[in-house]
Amino acid sequence: MTAELPVNEIAPGTWRPNRSRSKTIELIIKVICGAFAAISILTTIGIIGTLIFETFAFFGDLPLELSKDDQSVSFFQGILHFLTAGRWTPLFASKQFGIGVLISATLMITFISLAVALPLGLLAAICLSEYASAKVRRILKPVLEILAGVPTVVYGYFALLTVTPFFQWLLGPLENALPWWPQLEGFNALSAGIVLGVMITPMVASLSEDAIYSVPQSLRDGAYALGTTKRETVWSVVLPAALSGIVSSLILAMSRAVGETMIVTLAAGANPTLGFNPFVPVMTMTAFIVQVTAGDAPYGTIAYKTLFVVGMTLFLITLALNVFSFWFVRRFRQKYD
């Protein structure tokens, strides 16, 4: 602020600000800002509304689509088919809509990614908060931030063109030596899952690090006074105390992995198969959405509606994970002060 008070122009005592005008302006601004805040609610309504609308339209059309081949199908048989059928072929002439196919692939890749991110992220978090000096911390945290800021399409490139060939080279001798060892195909869930794990590692590390760092020093001092070593302190005092934060970071990372799109679309392929074989191409929920939208699904077709059904399933899974994570933190958070 510059001091531009009109001291010399106005005689003392005659300064009368226009209070009613500034009050009106304040009210207008307040209403506009409130409307902007309401946009976030409108977004949620928009998301849920479109998903529900098209989902209902899908289940309305489903019996008709299924009864083309054989006898007529009721509404509930349609839902049963959606939940239990073992094939996912909405773009073929003979259409089948077993969402389980897409869910199995999504779950498999998510668990592979967690198997990478859990040890890597948690150990990195322990290292940063317990072992690293302040100086090293200042260098390592930005590195993790860079890792978190890399666009996912870049990870997709890395998974498809670097990691898969690397694993093929690594596992080649095994394939030759053991006749039953499966061949790693060009598109596979393994590389996609591992690179996805690398992508969510910074998230696990930084959220867990926050939780571990906020455990009070007095707990560590108490443990040392009882004669424990550093590892025993970390393992049996610090980690249990930070457990709620660590678990919630893992669940959030899992939700992120379930909804991740580009890595799985590029590296895991587009072949809807039921099962948990990480060596062959699979198709996740997100990859299906990309496949259909990239190929321009005309409005009103069953393919267009399947987009939103898959989106709804994805939305419900991630929402459940996010809500569970919030609940977990609230329920199990330890307060020390």
Partner: peptide, 12 residues
Amino acid sequence: NLAGVPSIIYGL
């Protein structure tokens, strides 16, 4: 909650 919604859902 919105911060946790996958980006592809925003696309839909």
